[in-house]
């Protein structure tokens, strides 16, 4: 089952910040592939959602960038700034709490192995 784009859009910032917290630096394509790999293709981040969010995170000072030339083209790597590290922790904490609340609200029982 693939999740709807509305659901993913609301969590994209948290996903990107958490991924960058666990990796020193990443570029756009790498982020999409990592998400696909971790979620076994259940979450596929679109380019139309990814790049505006990355630019916004950069403008907000939550990520820093460095560029690398791959032949003629430029590859932009993103990594977390100190403020980004704090925000990543805050976002993950908020998401965990939100998921617990939703489970309660929708009466979803956690699956036991």
């Amino acid at each position: 089952m693939n999740y709807s784009s509305e659901l993913i859009k609301g969590t994209l910032k948290t996903i990107i910040l958490k991924l960058l917290a666990g990796n020193k630096k990443m570029y756009g394509y790498e982020i999409t592939q990592k998400v696909k790999e971790i979620t076994k293709d259940k979450i596929q981040i679109t380019e139309g959602a990814l790049y505006p969010t990355l630019h916004a995170l950069e403008a907000d000072g939550l990520v820093t960038t460095e560029t690398e030339y791959i032949g003629k083209r430029v590859r932009k790597y993103y990594s977390l700034s100190p403020a980004g590290k704090a925000t990543a922790k805050e976002k993950v904490k908020e998401m965990a709490s939100f998921m617990q609340t939703m489970a309660l609200l929708l009466d979803i029982q956690p699956k036991t192995a």
Binding site: E47, G48, H55, A56, A83, A86
Partner: peptide, 28 residues
């Protein structure tokens, strides 16, 4: 595969997110 209607949606979304109010300082 990058867009629903037009590719410029990505540009519009980026510009929209970039023009939101920004904080001059983030403090813990």
């Amino acid at each position: 595969s990058f867009y629903k209607k037009e590719l410029s949606e990505i540009e519009e979304e980026t510009r929209f997110l970039l023009t939101r109010p920004k904080y001059l300082l983030l403090l813990n």
